[in-house]
Simulated scan of single mutants.
Amino acid sequence: MIRAYRPDGTAEIFSASDPRTNLDPAILWLDLVNPDRAEEELAERLLGVPLPTRDDLKDIEPSSRLYVEDAVVFMTGSLVYHVETDLPELTDVAFILSGNRLITIRYAEPRAFSLFSAGLLRVPGRYQTGAEMLGRLLETVVDRTAEVLEIGVARLDALSAEVFVDRKAAKRRPPRFLEDKLLDIANHHRLVSKARDSLMSLSRLVTFLRSQPLVRKDPEADELCRIVAHDIQSLSEHAGFVSNNITFLLDASLGLISVEQNAIIKIFSIASVVFLPPTLVASIYGMNFQFMPELHWQFGYALALVAMLLSAIIPFQFFRWKGWL
C-alpha cells in the first residue's frame, strides 16, 4: 500500500496500476506499507529514485544503514512494535529524504506512524518541508518509545509487588510461583532491551540526519532533530536504569528461590537428625543376642518406646532453643 500525505493531513492511496508518472508537488510524505514489487516500481517511477527492497532492509549491514546517494539521504532505523504482547519485536524502517519530500518504507505497523498520521489532520498545514515532517515523525517515534518504557516500568512494578511480599503472603503462594515469575522477568527484559536497541539505532540516525545540509539549512527541522537527540539520550539513560532494576529483580527472585529450597532441605535435615536417636534405640533392641535382660522385663517394650520418644524430643527441643527451627 502507498499512502501520500499533503501538508493539510489529507491522504491519497495509490494502487500498483496507477497510470500517473509524477507526483503532486504538494505531497510531502510518501508512506509505503508492506509494498509488493509492483508498488515499489510505481514509487520509483513517481519519485525517480531507486528504493531499497525488503531484502535490502534485512540484509543491510549496520555500517551501511546511513548514506547519501545522488543528493538523496537514505536512513534505516529499528523501531519496536508488538509491545502489548509477550514477544515485542524490532522492525527496520527506511527513512528517505529526496528533495523536499519524505519517503518511508516499512513492513510492520509501529504505532508511532498511526499516531503521527492522525496528528496531521488535527493541525493541518503544520509542516512545510519534508525534513521538518521527518523531524516530527522521529519525535513521535521517540515519544512512543518513551511510552514503551513506561509500560515496562509499570509491569515491572506490578511484578515486584508480587515477588516481594510478607512471609504470611509468601506461604500462601502456589508451588513454583517464583519459578513462573522468572518467565515474566525475561519478557520484561526483552521489552526493555528492544527499546534500548531502538533508541541506539535512532540516536545514530538523528546524528547522521543533523549533519546533512538539507536539515542544517532548515532551522525548524534542525531544532527538532536537536530536541529528539536530547530526548533519545535521556531515554537511553532511563532504559539503562530500568534494565538494572530488572537485573536486581532477577537476582532477588533467584535468591528467594534458593531460600525456599534451603528451607525445604533444612526440614529434611532436621527430621533426619531427630529420628536418628530413635532409630538407634530400635536397632539396639532389634539385635538377637541371647543375654539382653530388657527382653524379659514385663515393661521392657514400653520402656523402649519411651526411650525412643525421649531421644526424639530432646534434639527437637534443643534445635528450638538454638533458634534453628
Rank of each mutant, 00 (worst) to 15 (best):
L51V: 01
Y67L: 07
A186H: 10
V274F: 10
V80L: 05
S15D: 10
A263Y: 10
R173C: 08
D92C: 02
A43R: 01
E223Y: 09
F268T: 10
P35H: 01
H238L: 13
P278W: 09
R3H: 07
L47S: 03
P277R: 15
L183Y: 12
E220C: 11
L97W: 02
S160W: 04
F319P: 10
L235D: 07
V228P: 03
A71T: 10
G240S: 11
V123M: 09
F268R: 11
P293S: 06
R65W: 03
A252D: 08
V228L: 04
S17M: 09
L182Q: 07
G255V: 07
G300V: 03
W297A: 04
I227Y: 10
F268I: 11
A158E: 12
Q261Y: 11
E220N: 14
S234H: 12
P315Q: 11
R155T: 03
I270W: 11
P293A: 04
D157P: 06
L224W: 07
Q261E: 14
P19Q: 04
C225T: 13
L102T: 00
L46W: 01
I264R: 15
T21I: 07
L178P: 08
G240L: 07
L120T: 06
D184P: 07
A263Q: 15
F299V: 09
E150Y: 11
A161R: 14
E44S: 11
V163Y: 05
P278F: 09
Y67V: 05
L249K: 00
A146W: 02
V153S: 12
R173I: 08
D143A: 10
L42Y: 02
S253Y: 08
I27S: 02
F318L: 11
H82S: 11
A94D: 00
P52R: 03
G152E: 08
V259A: 15
P88G: 01
L30D: 00
V142G: 02
G130T: 03
Y5Q: 05
A271K: 11
S15K: 05
Y107L: 04
L214P: 06
A169H: 11
V274I: 15
D231V: 05
A131W: 01
V306A: 12
T21K: 10
R173F: 09
L28R: 05
P315K: 13
K58V: 12
K168H: 12
D56I: 05
T129E: 07
D166Y: 13
I60Y: 03
A304D: 06
H296I: 06
F291G: 02
L310D: 06
P52L: 04
P35A: 04
D59Y: 02
R122E: 15
V93D: 00
A118T: 12
A312N: 09
S117W: 06
V306N: 08
N262T: 13
R216Q: 15
W321E: 06
K322R: 14
A271S: 15
S253E: 15
I103T: 11
V142Q: 02
F318D: 04
N244A: 15
P277H: 12
R176V: 06
Y81G: 00
L97D: 01
